[in-house]
Each structure stands twice: as structure tokens, then as C-alpha cells.
């Protein structure tokens, strides 16, 4: 290879390496801010501020969803396998919201440790199966398998 071209090749590699390192440091410094939501164990560890708009994510514990009979009010519990967080919500839940599935909740953490939600989003997983295949598999409605979030 011609020495001039070799020099330019080295310059290009240095440019890419240096910019990767720089961006790597920035993302490393912001690693917690890059998370879209807190896991329930972060709430249990006291890392989440009270009365501030935050997001929580976790698997909806099967059997924990309680709906009010005269209003849209709903209460449920989410978990990440280590800790649990109680959520109250008073609007319409998304279609894919289900027990044993993940959900991401925006709202405020109240002093009593429950979360008052103003938005609930359903987080679907990366598996795609036809209904017949899904039925023949073991029921998926539990948060046991690592409570993937």
C-alpha cells in the first residue's frame, strides 16, 4: 500500500476509534438516564424520588389486577422478580395489557409507596407464535421465568 494512503487509512481508523471512545464515555456516564423506566427493585431500594413524574416497568403479577365496579379505577402489582410495586390507575388500559405481561407505567410515586399512574403502556415481548402453537405451550401467564422486562 502506498505510504500516503496508509497514513490516511490510519487517520480514518483513529477518527472512528476516538469518536467511539468519546461517545462510549458519554453513554457510560449517562447509563442510568438512558433507562426508560425504573424496575420495582429500584423503588424498594429507595432510588426513586417521591411526587415526581417518573416511569416504572415490570411484569404484571397474575391475580393482582382489581377493577372497581363503578368506575375505570384499576389496581395491580408489577414485579421484576425481586421486588413488587403497587399501581393505581383510572383510565383505559391498552388492549395488550394482561397479567403475566410486561407494562410500563408513567406517574408519581406516592408517600405510601404506591404509584399513581397517568399512563399505562403494554410492553410486548419479542416472540411471535400462531394461536394454535401458543395454546399447546405451557401457559405463559406467570412472572416466574425471570420476569423479563
Amino acid at each position: 500500500m502506498h505510504p500516503v494512503r496508509k497514513q490516511r487509512l490510519i487517520l480514518v481508523l483513529v477518527l472512528v476509534t476516538l469518536s467511539s471512545v468519546a461517545v462510549g464515555f458519554v453513554t457510560y456516564a449517562m447509563r442510568e438516564n438512558m433507562d426508560y423506566f425504573y424496575a420495582p427493585s429500584a423503588f424498594a431500594a429507595g432510588e426513586v424520588p417521591f411526587e415526581k413524574r417518573i416511569r416504572a416497568g415490570g411484569c404484571v403479577v397474575p391475580g393482582s389486577v382489581q377493577r372497581a365496579e363503578d368506575s375505570l379505577d384499576v389496581r395491580f402489582v408489577i414485579t421484576d422478580g425481586e421486588a413488587e410495586l403497587a399501581v393505581v390507575f383510572d383510565k383505559i388500559l391498552p388492549d395488550l395489557f394482561a397479567e403475566g405481561e410486561a407494562a410500563v407505567i408513567s406517574g408519581r410515586l406516592m408517600q405510601d409507596g404506591t404509584m399513581r399512574a397517568d399512563q399505562v403502556l403494554a410492553k410486548h415481548d419479542e416472540t411471535y407464535t400462531p394461536p394454535e402453537v401458543a395454546e399447546s405451550m405451557v401457559s405463559h401467564e406467570s412472572c416466574a421465568d425471570g420476569a423479563k422486562i
Binding site: V23, R31, Y36, F37
Partner: peptide, 28 residues
């Protein structure tokens, strides 16, 4: 030069669903 500096973003996009909590599901 701009295109080369921007390549940093590609592995970030690809691995973002594994490195951080996101609403987007991981790779299928």
C-alpha cells in the same frame, strides 16, 4: 468524515434494547 463519526451510533441502536430498559422489545 460526518458519516464516519456517525458509525458510533449503529452498535448503540443495535444493542440499545439489551443495554437499557426500553419499551421496545429485544431482537427476535
Amino acid at each position: 468524515l460526518l458519516a464516519l463519526v456517525g458509525t458510533v451510533n449503529i452498535p448503540i441502536i443495535y444493542k440499545s434494547v439489551d443495554w437499557w430498559f426500553t419499551l421496545h422489545q429485544p431482537a427476535t
